[in-house]
Simulated scan of single mutants.
Amino acid sequence: MSTQDQVPVPVPLAGQCRCGHIQYRVVQEPRFTFACHCTDCQQLTSSAFSLGMAVPSDGFELHGEAHCWEKMSDSGGWSRQFTCPTCAGWTHTITENAPDIVIVRTSTLHDHRWVRPVAQIFTRSALPWALMPLQFSYDTEFSDTSPLEQAFAAGGIRPRRT
């Protein structure tokens, strides 16, 4: 599929925490989706991994006041997880390594059935049965997002208008 043939993500996308205290809108096209197998994500989700969607920070609108939990990441930079102060639903993350990007936790989107990761990170701490056969797999983090953005754009992963 050529760049001209790509169907844009039908923004805005909307989501919220479980109780609705925190609501958000994504008003710019997401750059890519991924799964994170780090132990923090495993603990925060009580699952094998978390799903994230990279969105330009100026394309993310937050409504409601989120609780911020800050932690030093394995790479030595800070990572801020934002949760609802009422239901503790984890809605998004911002990291020092990419302060211009908001990582939306895709399971909090109103419609997340279309979400499919193009990459997985922190596979070194993945549960063996949770590893996915993805083209892009990283033991830790990645620095060049352009291959992920291209795969997301070309891979038929974007949600379609119905």
Rank of each mutant, 00 (worst) to 15 (best):
A54P: 00
Q16H: 14
D58V: 11
Q42R: 11
P56T: 06
D58K: 13
S79D: 02
Y24R: 01
A35I: 02
T39F: 01
P85A: 07
V55F: 08
A54R: 02
S75A: 14
R80W: 04
Q42Y: 06
D74Y: 08
Q23W: 00
G77M: 08
A54I: 02
G52V: 01
L51A: 08
E70N: 06
E61Y: 00
A48I: 03
K71R: 12
S57E: 07
T91D: 07
P30K: 06
T39K: 04
S47E: 06
A54Y: 04
P30R: 08
Q42F: 01
D74Q: 04
C19D: 13
L51E: 05
G64S: 12
D58L: 05
W69A: 01
I94Y: 03
T45A: 10
S57F: 03
C68Q: 01
P56F: 03
Q42C: 05
C17L: 09
A48E: 15
W78Y: 11
E29Y: 09
C87V: 04
S73T: 14
A35Q: 06
F49A: 06
L44Y: 02
T86M: 01
P85G: 15
R31K: 13
F32E: 01
Q16T: 02
T86G: 07
R25T: 05
W90Y: 10
F32Q: 01
L51P: 00
C84M: 15
